[in-house]
Structure formats: C-alpha cells, structure tokens
C-alpha cells in the first residue's frame, strides 16, 4: 500500500467497511472520553476486535474488508509523515538531550530484541518463530520486510508487532506511575522503542513533546534494527 501504487477504488462494499470502521471508532472515542480516558477502552483494540468478529461470524474474507481498509492504510502513511511536525517543533529540546536519547534508545532496543530471543531460545520455539520474534520492536511496515529477509514469517511478525504495541500502550501509564518516571520525554522515547507506531500514536495523543520523542526514537530505532538484524542473522 503506497502512494505509488494506490489500492483500487473501494466501491460500495469497501465504502460500507470504511463507514463501519469510522462509526465504531467514533463511538469508542466517545466511550473512552466518557470513562475518563480509561486505558482499557483503546478504540484501536475494540474496533478491531469487533470487526474481526464480524468477519469470522459472517464468514467474510479479509480481502473484502481491505477493499475499504486499504485506504486507511494509505492515510496511515500520510499520518506517519506528519510526525515530522512535532519533531521540528521540539528540535531544540531534543537536541539538548541528544546524548541521553541515543544511549537510552540503543540499550532499550537491545533489551527488546534480546529478551525476546533469549526467551524464545529457552522456550524452544522453532527457528521460524525465533527469526520472526527478532523483528518485534521494529515498526510494522519495516518488520514485514526484515522478517522476510532473515527467514521469519512476515505476517506473524506484523501480528507480534501489533500485539506488542497495544500491550505497551495498555500497561505504559501504570508502569511509569509505579516506577516514578514522570519525565514525558523519557516516556515518549520508551514508547517509540518498545511500541513503535502504536506507541507513538498514543504518545502524540497525550502530548506533542512526548510524541516527538516517540516518533524520533521509533524512526531511528527502526532504521538501526533493520540494518543490524540481517547482518546478525547472516553470521549465525
């Protein structure tokens, strides 16, 4: 799904799924606001779960949902580029903390891939899933390509990346409150490293400064990991 190869026009069925997605999203936005921003009411999680249930129950193929859904993916691209705006706005603040930024990002990134691989090794998961998990903290469109390159399952990589992102967003606020980390720059940076696009989306929702740190760490971490992983896997 890219601007250079746009999906087919949605047609009535695609428009139906687009409209359903939008209406459900609007409903859950309201619900979340009504229940004081409760983390359990992530519209992304609930709307997706409802749509998946509809497809399963109605025995409707995913490709029919994607007639409409693919257009949202196109907008996701534009929305990702927009992260440049808060990054530009907060460039002076980012620059002042550049050293800490890089050290924290690198160690955080190593710990993300490291814990996943060490556990996969001890739980004796097969090599296919092992290679898939290595990509888990890279942003989703990236994980797809890298997972392919190092011999994992691209579709599962996307799934793991997305579950990771949602889980991080769900527990993030509690974790930071519990550990007394109140610096929103630190929180944004952590969301970008551990929860990629979904984490960045949530960080931006909370504050532009948090979002700019998340966007920057997601981008840098994604690029670094996608360059390093194929090298590591070609050695082993």
């Amino acid at each position: 799904m890219s601007l250079l190869s746009l999906p087919d026009l949605p047609g009535w069925e695609g428009l139906f799924w687009l409209a359903t997605t939008l209406v459900l999203y609007a409903i859950f936005l309201r619900l979340r606001r009504h229940f004081n921003d409760s983390g359990l009411l992530q519209p992304l999680l609930w709307v997706s779960a409802l749509l998946m249930a509809a497809l399963l129950i109605g025995d409707i193929s995913l490709s029919r949902y994607q007639l409409g859904g693919n257009w949202l993916v196109v907008i996701l691209g534009l929305s990702t580029v927009s992260i440049g705006v808060p990054i530009y706005d907060n460039l002076p603040i980012i620059r002042r903390a550049a050293g800490a930024f890089f050290v924290a990002m690198l160690l955080g990134s190593v710990s993300a891939v490291g814990t996943a691989l060490v556990m996969a090794y001890f739980l004796q998961l097969d090599t296919l899933i092992f290679a898939t998990l290595a990509t888990k903290s890279i942003t989703s469109p990236l994980a797809f390509g890298v997972s392919n390159e190092i011999g994992g399952l691209p579709a599962l990589a996307m799934g793991v990346v997305i579950i990771t992102g949602n889980f991080a967003v769900l527990i993030g606020p509690k974790l930071f409150a519990l550990t007394g980390i109140s610096d929103i720059r630190a929180q944004g940076l952590a969301y970008g490293v551990a929860a990629h696009g979904i984490g960045t989306a949530e960080a931006i929702r909370q504050s532009a400064l948090m979002g700019s740190f998340a966007g920057l760490s997601m981008g840098l971490n994604g690029v670094l990991t996608s360059l390093v992983l194929p090298m590591v896997f070609s050695l082993s």
Partner: peptide
C-alpha cells in the same frame, strides 16, 4: 510462549529505556 515473550520483552525495554533516559538526561 508467544504471550509470555511479548509481555516480558515489552515491559523490560519500556521501563529500561525510560529509566536510562530519566537518569542521564538534563
């Protein structure tokens, strides 16, 4: 196994990244 791995490998980097930055940053 996947759930266990996802939980640990999300909580650890989320905390570690924020913690290191919090300590090092001005």
């Amino acid at each position: 196994p996947l759930l266990l791995i996802i939980i640990v490998s999300t909580v650890v980097p989320l905390w570690l990244t924020a913690f290191i930055f919090d300590r090092l940053a001005p």
